[in-house]
Design a protein around this nucleic acid. Structure first.
Lengths: 108, 108
DNA sequence: TTAATGCGCAATCAATTAGTTGCAAATATA
DNA sequence: TATATTTGCAACTAATTGATTGCGCATTAA
């Protein structure tokens, strides 16, 4: 099954999980407690996130702690860059318009 | 139907459309030509993008030109910020480790 | 006026999805 | 050893998705 990070963040529950485990490693049960959902539902989301290579796991006895591979999130940022170039260009153009207006103002 | 921008970018065809119309306004037919897909399929994607308030449309005779509301893409960037804070913090910590190593080196 | 073009929308279909239930394996506790 | 806990995985269901087909409306061209 082909998954990508954009599909991973499409689901709101999954986005919340990502935020939750971005700074702390948590077990599936601990995650489920935060969301009023079942452990199994969380488990399925974890599986998907894992397929996207978004998780680090650390086993400790019978518990498994999951944490976000935060660097993976940079892939989204990288994709966004092509739009940033455009919106920054537009912003600069707007800026130029404002400067031109001000110059004209001073001419009066 | 409740849509959000994260669902909009979940589909690879839709991501390609967004890139395509980020700098130029195009008609559904013109978009479809770029992807070797049908006009109707593109039309459905456009509908979804529209529901997410991602598009500006300009009617010209019987043609409708669609262009990306580029500012809307900032919402994704805004969501990413919470992760950026973490990865920058980690980077600085790593930086500190390297500085400490260098200091110890100089002590020898 | 008639024919062709560009478009949105509804109906339909196959595939995928999120969630539930049930179970077996591994670990911990009594 | 017997029991309880934590987990992953498979089977199932209801809902959603992407794509196709067919239609009607508006605009343009002959």
């Amino acid at each position: 099954m082909k998954r990508d990070i954009f599909q991973a963040i499409a689901d709101p529950t999954r986005r919340a999980i990502l935020v939750l485990i971005s700074s702390t490693a948590l077990t599936p049960n601990a995650i489920a407690e935060q969301f009023k959902t079942t452990r199994q539902a969380v488990s399925k989301h974890i599986k998907i996130l894992n397929e996207c290579d978004l998780l680090e796991e650390r086993k400790e006895g019978r518990e498994i702690f999951y944490q976000l591979k935060i660097d993976k999130m940079k892939e989204i940022d990288k994709w966004l860059e092509q739009f940033k170039e455009i919106w920054e260009k537009r912003f600069n153009q707007l800026d130029q318009v404002l400067i031109n207006l001000k110059t004209k103002e001073n001419e009066n």
